[in-house]
Design a binder for these strands. Structure first.
Lengths: 342, 342
DNA sequence: TTGAAAGCGCTAACAC
DNA sequence: GTGTTAGCGCTTTCAA
């Protein structure tokens, strides 16, 4: 732990610029932060000096003074190998881009196994970040409620399931019931009538949400759902086993899945049986993962608008200082990307 | 741009701890940074106070004073959809974990399209990070040489191709020729003799490196390579087209590919022709991507030891302050993950 | 072994 | 409009 990395040649400071421009340090500070306050020619002179020296305000000093680091903390969960839905990665990309536009950088910290709150706590106490974006609200909101109790600024990607109405923090989420309905409608349009659902275990609230989209669409078209649904672990193997059972017992012609991982399980079983996805049996997944995009013949999948979500989250973050009315929740609509599997 | 996020309740400072423990601020600082200097009972008293208040040193203040942010900058390139090899994502995970162990956090910044150096420059001038980890050394070393000219501390994930011997900065790379050889040997063992290569364009030095692993292994077993190689863009469509051409003209029974993306192109063409990967034709990819792990029947792939690479990079970073001898380069060995496609 | 003084680079508050 | 003063929380230096 902790030797110190070699140091850079000291960059120019406010004082250097001030001297070169023949003004006071404060005037340089104003030129950077409140240019309107300066007379035109002074501003020009200072800007020329800034340019000449390649001056950039020192972050640590500014941070210390303003109590704002312009850093957003994001906990990055451990890698999940063998599972298709690496949604977090696409989200990170989107977030880095949108937050940079708003003048923020993303500070990544690891998701420690034992104590989910440890990383947040440390960054909070050391005032390393201005706010957090919380993504792991799926299982429960322990992190959210802890952050709230610490009065830490944060916004959540994911609904506060405990208390969806009277949320005490802003959140952004994807209407995944609508996504599942979209996939189901798509298959119905294609002429399928026996459409199976493979989803997550009942405890998983997002899973139940998605499932309701499927059953809603089915009922809207007076199609049967009995015996056509299963709830399993989110792994390829479970998806495959569920497919086998459903094919044997319920004779579906199409599968709507709660995740690309499960949909890949379906593809595996079809492959093993010599059935052709998209021709013999239709399949849809959820998340438009890399795997969905690349697996032959292409996996139809529900795509979450992560770029929009990231933008809304950053916007919400900036609103955190505003009037402390009831915080807003935003529900975004997913889209369907149709490919060869349907 | 840039409204400021609402502020936290001010955390305790060194002074608070000092008062509670009945010592000077300096003693508290020593308790944190040089505990050996304190008498045992003083240390215990201070630590109790730290514990009680939940004190953590303010990062900005410490940064300002020590000129070290304990942040490592990583430029995150734009997302590449539809391509399998999202190596950067697994790397980010690995890096966040290992750098946290060394007391560093990762600061992500976007890869701006026009000026590859812009993001680095800004962070450097504002002394926002202690060092960079550079990953985009594939195309050339413009970023590396720029950083060097600015005397910025950095280590590279990827060889300095311009000047591999007398490198002026530490680097870590994967021996990808060995990886391609590994895959080729594996297929030879399985009894294949006509093994085709699908790789990247000649300009791509890593691609040529990988190709040499294939041809080396082939020659070592006196197997033919003539007419069995092609160089294409790194896309699924190109991989597919190359496969079609090779199947028609050279009758290979196996394909070694420079990337999982190209290997998926092979799978697509096989799928279209009704050929079964792993039974009729063997295929191997490179990077052990999510897609390789999940596509039926599993894509055999060369796996880069990214976790080890991240660890070596962080270690090299810590050595950056040390004696300024000739910086080290480290070449790590990949492994082969065999799956159904071979 | 502990404490006092100084200052890192910046901006908020105020005086001119 | 511009300059002066003070101080954010910490560590380095030096004195006790």
């Amino acid at each position: 732990m902790s030797r110190v990395i070699g140091r850079l040649a000291a960059p120019p400071t406010l004082a250097d610029v001030a001297e070169l421009a023949g003004v006071s340090r404060q005037t340089v500070s104003n030129a950077v932060n409140n240019p309107d306050l300066l007379r035109e020619d002074t501003l020009a002179r200072v800007q020329a000096a800034i340019e000449e020296l390649g001056y950039q305000p020192n972050r640590a000093a500014r941070s210390l003074r303003t109590r704002s680091s312009r850093l957003i903390g994001l906990r990055i969960p451990p890698v999940q190998e063998g599972t298709a839905n690496a949604l977090i990665d696409r989200f990170v990309h989107a977030l880095v881009d949108t937050s940079a536009d708003a003048g923020y950088h993303i500070l990544l910290f690891p998701g420690e196994a034992g104590d989910p709150v440890a990383g947040y706590d440390e960054l909070l106490r050391s005032t390393a970040v201005d706010a957090f974006i919380v993504t792991d609200t799926l299982q429960g909101d322990s992190v959210s409620s802890w952050l709230r109790s610490r009065r830490a600024p944060f916004v959540a990607f994911g609904r506060p399931w405990e208390n969806p109405e009277g949320a005490t923090h802003p959140w952004v989420d994807i209407d995944s019931a609508a996504g599942a309905a979209l996939a189901t409608e798509h298959l119905i349009e294609k002429g399928h009538t026996r459409i199976a659902w493979i989803g997550w275990r009942r405890e998983h609230l997002v899973g139940e949400e998605r499932r309701s989209g499927w059953s809603r669409a089915m009922h809207a078209h007076s199609l049967p759902t009995t015996g056509l649904a299963s709830r399993v672990e989110d792994t390829i193997a479970s998806g495959r086993a569920a497919t086998a059972a459903l094919l044997n017992e319920a004779a579906p012609t199409a599968f709507v899945c709660a995740s690309d991982t499960l949909a890949l399980g379906v593809l595996h079983e079809l492959h093993a049986r010599g059935l052709r996805p998209g021709e013999d049996i239709a399949v849809t997944g959820f998340d438009d993962s890399i795997a969905a995009q690349t697996v032959p013949p292409g996996l139809t999948s529900v795509r979450q608008p992560l770029e929009d979500a990231a933008a809304e989250l950053v916007k919400a973050l900036e609103g955190l200082q505003g009037p402390v009315g009831s915080p807003e929740g935003i529900l975004l609509q997913p889209t369907l990307v149709a490919r060869g599997s349907s």
